[in-house]
């Protein structure tokens, strides 16, 4: 199900065969992808997979060893200033000056992005409002908690209203309430601009992204829309509970059931293969009067996909292990 290709509207970011070496270590290897307008792209991978390196290259903080990056039609190497002005970037560590106040810092960032004097005040207000920083405008950044520093970092990335916002692990170090706020902020950003979000937290991707890319050891190994991923993740595990539970053998004999695990005397976890299995199970349970009172689709298998994809051994690894 490929989306129709619109020739008139080129992708906001096009990355082609991007590679990066650190000495002999390959950090990123031949990564190519596009980011379209209004899309929230999740960049998923275990620690050290090359997420941050890719982000740094896309934002111009790091020069690629090979490959091409085009942002909004501007080549990052030929036309770096125009390309970079289309981007807002929050690196892994928020790049804040501890000795400045929040207002001073954001003003400086806005000036760096060439906002004029008249644009500055409304932009500052809006960025602070977006990130919940109205109360702390006059406080020194060094005295703020990690969560607030992170928000200042995000405010910095959006103050000049760039068409693309790149956030590198934006929710690290935040409390659950702040994480929720940041996620809703990212969602709202996604309405009128494109976002690339790197993370190793799976629910974060499910909660905020339209599309997912999984990177492992510098290579892009999975690229799909979030719906596809959900589809793949959902549906093959169910937790069920009965008032008159049948024995395990009976359940295992039901059509489409793969395995049955007993959780407690009333509950089972069922792995199945067939489509519409849940409906089928309800019917059977009514016929046999098992008294089904709980039916929960398990999404843990999404995590399993991630684990499976990111830890699968390549032939090279096997050889290595053998040797």
């Amino acid at each position: 199900m490929d989306a129709p290709i619109d020739i008139k509207q080129p992708p906001l970011i096009r990355v082609e065969k991007l590679s990066r070496l650190y000495g002999d270590t390959v950090a990123v290897n031949q990564v190519s992808f596009d980011l379209n307008k209004g899309e929230v792209l999740g960049f998923l991978g275990p620690n050290g997979a090359g997420k941050s390196t890719s982000m740094q290259m896309i934002t111009g903080s790091l020069a690629p060893t090979a490959g091409q990056i085009t942002i909004n039609g501007f080549d990052l190497i030929d036309d770096p200033i125009k390309a970079k002005s289309c981007i807002g970037y929050l690196p892994e560590n928020p790049p804040v000056y501890r000795e400045l106040t929040v207002d001073e810092y954001l003003t400086y960032c806005a000036r760096l992005h060439r906002l004029s004097r008249t644009e500055l005040t409304p932009a500052l207000q809006e960025a602070k409002e977006h990130c919940g920083l109205e109360e702390v405008g006059h406080r020194l950044i060094g005295n703020l908690s990690k969560g607030f520093q992170q928000r200042v970092g995000i405010a910095q990335a959006i103050i000049h209203q760039p068409p693309v916002v790149i956030l590198d692990e934006p929710t690290v170090g935040l409390d659950p309430i702040q994480i929720r706020e940041i996620r809703s902020l990212i969602k709202s950003l996604g309405q009128n601009r494109s976002v690339i979000l790197s993370t190793h937290i799976l629910p974060e991707v499910q909660a905020t992204c339209d599309r997912v890319q999984i990177i492992r050891r510098g290579e892009l190994i999975y690229n799909a829309s979030i719906d596809e991923l959900n589809q793949r993740g959902k549906g093959n595990h169910l937790t069920v509970a009965f008032t008159q539970p049948p024995n395990q053998q009976t359940l295992e004999d039901v059509d489409g059931v793969k395995t049955v695990t007993s959780i407690d005397p009333q509950r089972y976890q069922i792995q199945f293969e067939a489509d519409d299995f849940a409906m089928f199970l309800v019917e059977i349970s009514v016929q046999n009067q098992w008294g089904l009172f709980e039916l929960i689709p398990d999404n843990t298998s999404l995590e399993e996909i991630f684990v499976e994809l990111t830890t699968a051994e390549t032939p090279a690894d096997v050889e290595e292990n053998a040797a």
Partner: peptide, 13 residues
């Protein structure tokens, strides 16, 4: 402090 990233990613040479 890695604040150099801010300057590298800003539209300045």
């Amino acid at each position: 402090n890695k604040t150099i990233n801010l300057l590298f990613s800003a539209p300045i040479s």
